[in-house]
Design a protein around this nucleic acid. Structure first.
Lengths: 210, 210
DNA sequence: GATAAAATACCCACTTCCGGGTATTTTTAT
DNA sequence: ATAAAAATACCCGGAAGTGGGTATTTTATC
């Protein structure tokens, strides 16, 4: 099984490589330190599985997953994430990932997950499984996904909010009316399903946007 | 050199262990998945160095560092962190850590840092060095540390703010007056040197408080 | 060329938050 | 026992953010 590792912290890449090389079936053929790199390397190396972190600069793991699956048939994505939040799991599984494991799994479970995903099946770690199933059932009943991706402009606004900018300051730096930023803020809160700035910043942090 | 690893993500512990065991001088004698555990294990195992993450549940790496150094003479702490923010570096170095390396270092630099710290010297990774030095010089001139730790109550308030609670809701859940929470909020912003809720939540996220 | 999505901008009303204080009581530490 | 720190609570005023709309222009997309 050929494997591409994508994580923005190189000591983790080193660690994972050292760990996974102990498994004879696994062969680490490449590494990437952000989403963009992960897509480029996938195109060239056509790995069986990409082990992907979500929180990455340049391009986050969610966008990268979509891009990898769009261009590399046969390549699967296994997500290795810090967080077990419903919305995060749902979002990336909808993007086409084959599995989701938390960073607090042991070596054994990670290797098991890799095999399952490489064989074309889904693997969700215990902590996220039940939540995700409930989520899916609710979706089927209600007939809607509930999730709406942010637009380019909205992401830009999020990043400036994370830098402690006020609406006025954001407007000034983007050469727009404060009322436009106000509209963006409202749409962002609604799309992300959060109540206020605190929820918004948490969301951004968990995706490596700041 | 005996080593204790402290990180809340066990796959990272596994990875670091696999990586560092390749170095014959290094011997990993224990692991901890939060600050409290790190202190307990240090007391028992008396390792030469504790390789400590900052973002951990129960007790963060900063408090844990203080506690370890208070009870284990001869044990040094090397911090392994995601962030290169001045305030974070300054805070933990003032707590007594012997070094600070980012998670995007390579294996070689990490091992080098471990040796230097074990020998009783300081090691700061390139990215934080100049910033920290400037910081220290500024402090010497102005004669003040600038940093003020949050109190227990203030941390409690921070956590509730991170859960998207409003001042009113926090007051209700702690059975206090909203004006008290307002005072806490203002003091928190001032102590942390941030402008608003966004900065506050970022701070909390980086320390693993939510 | 039609249609949808995104980006822009405005309205009103209300809540929440921030900046500047002051002051009392309770805990903690020496 | 006493000083210092923490926790509590209030004042005023203004800035910032949220919730509910509507509407126009620009940019993708089919």
């Amino acid at each position: 099984m050929t494997l591409l590792l994508a994580d923005d912290q190189s000591i983790i890449l080193d660690g994972l490589e050292a760990l996974l090389e102990q498994d004879e079936e696994v062969q680490v053929v490449g590494r990437a330190s952000n989403g963009r790199e992960a897509v480029e390397r996938s195109k060239k190396l056509k790995p069986d599985v990409v082990l992907m972190d979500i929180s990455m600069p340049e391009m986050d793991g969610i966008e990268a997953t979509k891009a990898v699956l769009a261009c590399c048939t046969g390549t699967r994505v296994l997500v290795l994430s810090m967080y077990d939040h419903h919305d995060l799991v749902h979002e990336i599984m909808e993007a086409g990932a084959s599995g989701y494991v938390l960073k607090n799994v042991g070596k054994e479970e990670l290797c098991r997950a890799l095999r399952i995903v490489a064989a074309g099946q889904q693997y969700l770690t215990q902590e996220v499984r039940s939540a995700f199933d409930n989520d899916m059932r609710a979706k089927e009943i209600m007939g809607e996904t509930g999730y709406h991706a942010l637009t380019k402009r909205e992401k830009e606004v999020v990043k400036l909010i994370c830098r402690e900018c006020t609406t006025q300051e954001i407007a000034a730096s983007l050469f727009l009316s404060p009322q436009t930023i106000d509209t963006h803020r409202k749409n962002i809160l609604h799309k992300l399903g959060v109540r206020n700035t605190a929820g918004l910043v948490k969301y951004a942090k968990e995706r490596g946007w700041c």
